[in-house]
Simulated scan of single mutants.
Amino acid sequence: MKKLLILLAAFSISAAASAQTTPVKTVRGQYQKSQKQDLTPEQRADRAAQKLTKSLNLSAAQGQQVRQLQLARIQQQQAYKGQAGPAAKADRKARHQAMKGQRAQYDAQLKQILSADQYTKYAQMQADKKAKHQAKRQNKG
Rank of each mutant, 00 (worst) to 15 (best):
D107Q: 13
T53V: 03
Q78N: 10
K132P: 05
G141E: 05
R95C: 07
N139C: 09
D128I: 01
Y106I: 08
G101M: 03
A17I: 14
Q37K: 11
Q68W: 01
D38W: 03
V24N: 05
A123W: 13
Q105E: 13
P86F: 14
Q97L: 13
H96L: 15
Q102E: 03
P23C: 06
Q62C: 08
I74F: 05
K81M: 15
K130H: 14
K121S: 02
A72M: 12
R28Y: 14
D46Y: 04
K111N: 06
D46F: 01
S115Q: 02
A16T: 12
R103I: 01
T40Y: 05
A84Q: 13
R28M: 14
A79W: 01
Q62R: 03
K51G: 14
R28T: 09
K111V: 00
Q105M: 07
A87L: 11
Q138F: 08
Q83I: 00
Q102W: 02
Q109V: 00
Q83K: 11
T120V: 10
M99G: 07
D117M: 03
Q78S: 07
H96W: 07
Y122C: 05
A72V: 11
K51A: 12
Q64Y: 04
A127T: 10
A79F: 08
A72K: 00
P41Y: 10
A60L: 02
S59I: 04
L114A: 03
R103F: 02
Q105I: 04
P86T: 14
A15C: 03
Q20D: 08
L56W: 01
R92A: 13
D107K: 15
L52S: 02
R73Q: 07
P86A: 12
A131Q: 15
S18I: 14
K111W: 00
G63E: 10
A108R: 13
E42S: 06
K132T: 10
S115K: 02
S55H: 09
K93T: 08
L110T: 00
R103A: 15
G85I: 11
H96M: 13
A16M: 15
R67S: 03
Q68K: 10
A135H: 09
A45C: 08
Q126G: 07
P41V: 05
S18Y: 11
K81Q: 14
A45G: 07
P41T: 08
V27C: 06
R47Y: 12
A104N: 14
G141T: 09
Q30M: 11
E42G: 11
Q97A: 13
P23N: 04
I74K: 02
Q64P: 00
K89Q: 11
A127M: 09
